[in-house]
């Protein structure tokens, strides 16, 4: 086997590996908004975030518009504060919008849903760093069952 053939074979090998890596990176993994495009940040306070996690998706009508960047506990009110990273593409949510923690399917993972609100002259558009006031917490199964039993009585 001469040098040229070996070099070509090694070149093919590396090319195949790079191709495989691209498949993994682009088709298999969720590169999401981590590196693609610019984002802006919004905050939302919840009473209970349930099973929401960092990097959970944020959806509007089922379309992913961003990701949960971080979840912290507010030290004064002891309520969780969620930092939302939303793609610059979707930068006109009015301040009347609401955020809900939803669950995909009965046992599926939890995600954030944004319900865009109405717009008129008095309503501002949410800017980078604003807080969404209208939030609805996660449904916690135990509380639901408790309510159900209470209502029966």
């Amino acid at each position: 086997m001469n040098t040229r053939k070996i070099e070509i074979a090694v070149g093919c090998f590396v090319a195949i590996a790079i191709g495989a890596f691209l498949i993994l990176a682009l088709k298999v993994a969720n590169t999401g908004f981590a590196g693609s495009g610019e984002t802006y940040t919004l905050y939302a306070d919840f009473e209970n975030i349930g099973g929401l996690k960092t990097r959970s998706p944020i959806k509007v009508g089922g379309v992913v518009v961003g990701r949960v960047a971080s979840i912290e506990l507010d030290k004064t009110f002891y309520t969780p504060r969620v930092r939302l990273e939303i793609s610059k593409q979707y930068d006109n949510f009015p301040e009347t919008s609401s955020v809900v923690i939803l669950t995909s399917g009965l046992l599926g993972e939890q995600y954030l849903g944004i319900q865009p609100g109405f717009i008129d002259e008095t309503v501002h558009i949410l800017q980078d760093g604003d807080v969404i006031e209208d939030t609805r917490s996660a449904m916690v199964l135990e509380e639901l069952i408790g309510q159900f039993l209470f209502n029966r009585n």
């Binding site: 969720n30 590169t31 981590a34 993972e109």
Partner: peptide, 15 residues
């Protein structure tokens, strides 16, 4: 198959 994969696989954490 692909979308559930994308939703659950993380480039840094997994790949």
């Amino acid at each position: 198959y692909w979308s559930a994969m994308q939703a659950n696989v993380d480039l840094y954490q997994d790949v």
